Simulated assay, not measured.
Amino acid sequence: MDRIAAMNAFVRVVEAGSFTKAADTLDLPNATVTRLIQGLEQDLKVRLLHRTTRSVTVTPEGATYYERVVRLLADLADIESTTTLTQGKPSGRVRVEAPAAIGTSVIVPALGEFYRNYPDVQVDLGIGNRRSDLVAEGVDCAIRAGEINEQLIVARRIGAFRFTTCAAPALLDAQGAPQTPADLDRWPTIGLISARTGRPLPFRYVEGESTSTSDLSLGHKLILSDTNSYVAAGLAGLGIIQAPSYAVHEAIQQGRLVALLKDWRAPTIPVNVLYAPNRYLSAKVRVFIDWAVELFASNPCLRSG
């Protein structure tokens, strides 16, 4: 039996709470994971897991073993990672998740540079607004916007952005431009669904140097759940939008959208890269995170501070 593979399988089963989920994250058949755990228990002569048809729980002996094995695997990974980084050849598959707009507008266009620097790293990029369980689903790291509420997760801030209120020139030519946020109820507006609440995000404003925020709940003409389609609706002249600055910056520079209400700023939204604290950072994950930090720092719409 490959003891390291068995230890890794055991750790994944404990963290995922399921043999099936652990097998999926390891890209192994369920039967192989089961066989590895059984072999480990036979060698150790102790039961590590309680199994029922509905759940898998760790035994007291298994919990103690898990804590020591996690540290051991982390030390082994650190040795391999340091050696690999020294050789300058990180390799393997990195599972990353990112919001649709950030993935499409920021990460994907820049991946060519990443691959030139690290040709042996394969990025498995999940783009969407679903917030998955990083540990249970075997995701190496996730880039997420907004405040982080998850416990037992490491969050490293890599950037920030604001929302920009804007509209297509044709819409403004026909109806003029609002002068204050209170004017917005006289224009058609478009709502963006929050992935967290399932409701349209309010248009938010801070006037001048004030620290208080005003939220406007508007009767939107159209409501969308994806930032990319949201910006597309604004470009089509269907209504006024309040979109992430990085998603509309180019269109504003090109004159396809016009920024509105410049005297009222929106609150700052943080962007973090997340990963599990007891998941060792291999060389391939480290270089991706470091690259993402530099990528966000180089973008005027996303850099912190």
Rank of each mutant, 00 (worst) to 15 (best):
L26Y: 03
T104Y: 13
W264Q: 00
G112Y: 12
R35P: 00
A247G: 05
Q175N: 14
H220F: 07
Q87D: 12
A170D: 13
G208E: 08
L224R: 10
A266F: 04
V273D: 03
P169D: 10
A23M: 06
I4V: 13
T86N: 14
G138E: 00
V285E: 13
I107S: 05
R3H: 10
A145G: 11
T189G: 10
S225M: 04
R93S: 08
Q254W: 02
I252K: 00
L49V: 07
T164C: 07
I148A: 07
P270Q: 05
H50T: 09
Y205H: 06
Y65D: 03
T86Q: 14
N30S: 06
F19W: 08
T25W: 00
P119E: 07
N149A: 10
L274A: 00
P277T: 05
V96Y: 06
D263H: 12
Y230S: 01
E61H: 09
T34R: 15
L224P: 05
M1D: 10
R265F: 02
E67F: 07
P300Y: 00
L257N: 05
P29H: 11
N149W: 08
W264K: 01
I190N: 05
D140R: 01
S18L: 04
A155C: 03
L40I: 05
I193S: 03
G219L: 09
T165L: 00
R51Y: 02
A167V: 07
D263A: 11
Q87H: 14
V287Y: 09
L152H: 11
M1G: 11
L73S: 08
C141V: 15
I223E: 13
E80R: 15
V33M: 10
R286C: 12
L134E: 08
T83W: 10
P188A: 09
L302F: 02
A170K: 11
P178I: 06
K284N: 15
A276Y: 06
I269E: 12
S298C: 09
L72C: 05
P99F: 10
R12F: 06
I223S: 11
R54I: 06
L222I: 15
V14R: 04
L261R: 10
R130N: 12
P29Y: 06
D263V: 02
T104F: 13
P267K: 08
G62S: 08
I289F: 05
A5F: 08
D290P: 03
D226F: 08
I37W: 01
G146W: 02
L48E: 07
A276M: 06
R51G: 01
I148H: 09
I223Q: 11
G138S: 01
E113L: 11
A168D: 09
D173G: 08
R186Y: 08
D215P: 02
D173E: 15
K262A: 13
L274M: 04
V108M: 10
R131T: 09
R279M: 11
C166F: 00
W264E: 02
K284I: 01
Q242S: 14
T57R: 15
S212E: 14
V11I: 14
F296D: 00
